[in-house]
């Protein structure tokens, strides 16, 4: 564990340096935004500097941190539930042909049901509590994770399984040396997709169902026709998502899948 952490820290500078391309392209987007804002009414599209100043204001008076914290807690709770339950059930379903055949239509139903529909149901079930956004996030994140886990197990090479049997690998070693590394290569992309979904869905759920969090703050800016405030919150949410994905999940994924990239 310590070794992984040390490798992660050692790799960080090169990793961040490699991010210059991405940062440059984001700055280009910012420039486009600023250019467009010169031609549009500030009420429709305020210029980025105003938005960043608003965001800075929100962050310095401490308000934004608590709202972001609340939203983050809900999003990550729902995401973590999905990650645990979806990965476990998906892997179990993958072990049996019958279970995977049966699970597929259910997952299609889950994917096909609009998140807003789940949100209304959740409001009826959980009211204005944390349960509503957490449940909505859970349901929205579940299908991609479940499918990733199921496919991971189903696609495991039968030849490797036979080899493991011939070399009499005990069950735990089989799990850690054979099943998990293979399944993880399917799970990681699914987890990253689900993480993005969780942030989008949590803000939507808060907008309609709760009195606090970023979504609720967006509801306030909307009622006050505060476009700069709205964009400031959006920037904050997207920034938080990028931070979690690129500072946490991506590096872990790179470390776990080093064998794949070295080919």
């Amino acid at each position: 564990m310590i070794g992984i952490l040390r490798q992660w820290l050692a790799g960080l500078p090169a990793y961040l340096w490699g991010g210059w391309g991405a940062i440059a392209s984001l700055l280009l987007l910012l420039a486009g935004w600023e250019f467009a804002s010169q031609w549009l009414d500030p009420l429709a599209l305020p210029d980025p500097r105003t938005v960043l100043a608003t965001l800075h204001g929100l962050l310095t008076d401490g308000n934004a941190w608590s709202e972001l914290g609340i939203t983050g807690r809900r999003a990550l709770t729902g995401f973590a539930l999905s990650l645990g339950i979806g990965s476990a059930l998906g892997m179990l379903a993958g072990l049996s042909m019958t279970a995977s055949m049966m699970a597929r239509p259910w997952v299609t139903v889950l994917v096909g049901t609009p998140p807003i529909g789940w949100l209304v149901l959740a409001m009826l079930w959980f009211g204005a509590s944390d349960g509503t956004p957490v449940f909505t996030v859970f349901v929205a994140c579940f299908p991609p994770i479940f499918i990733g886990a199921m496919q991971g197990v189903r696609t495991l090479d039968g030849q490797l399984r036979e080899m493991a049997q011939a070399f009499a690998l005990p069950p735990l070693q089989r799990l850690f040396d054979l099943y998990l590394p293979h399944v993880l290569s399917y799970l990681f992309p699914a987890w990253i997709t689900a993480l993005g979904v969780s942030w989008k869905v949590v803000v939507m759920a808060e907008l309609l169902a709760t009195a606090d969090g970023v979504g609720a703050a967006l509801a306030v800016t909307r009622s006050q026709l505060d476009t700069a405030g709205t964009l400031a919150w959006i920037v904050a949410v997207v920034g938080a998502l990028l931070a979690v994905e690129y500072l946490l999940l991506e590096p872990v994924k790179r470390e776990v899948e080093r064998w794949r990239t070295l080919a």
Binding site: Q159, E162, M163, A166, F167, L178, P181, W259, R260
Partner: peptide, 13 residues
């Protein structure tokens, strides 16, 4: 012990 026609090595090790 066994050896197969394909190497059957674990790609992540």
């Amino acid at each position: 012990a066994c050896m197969f026609q394909q190497p059957r090595l674990l790609p992540w090790k």
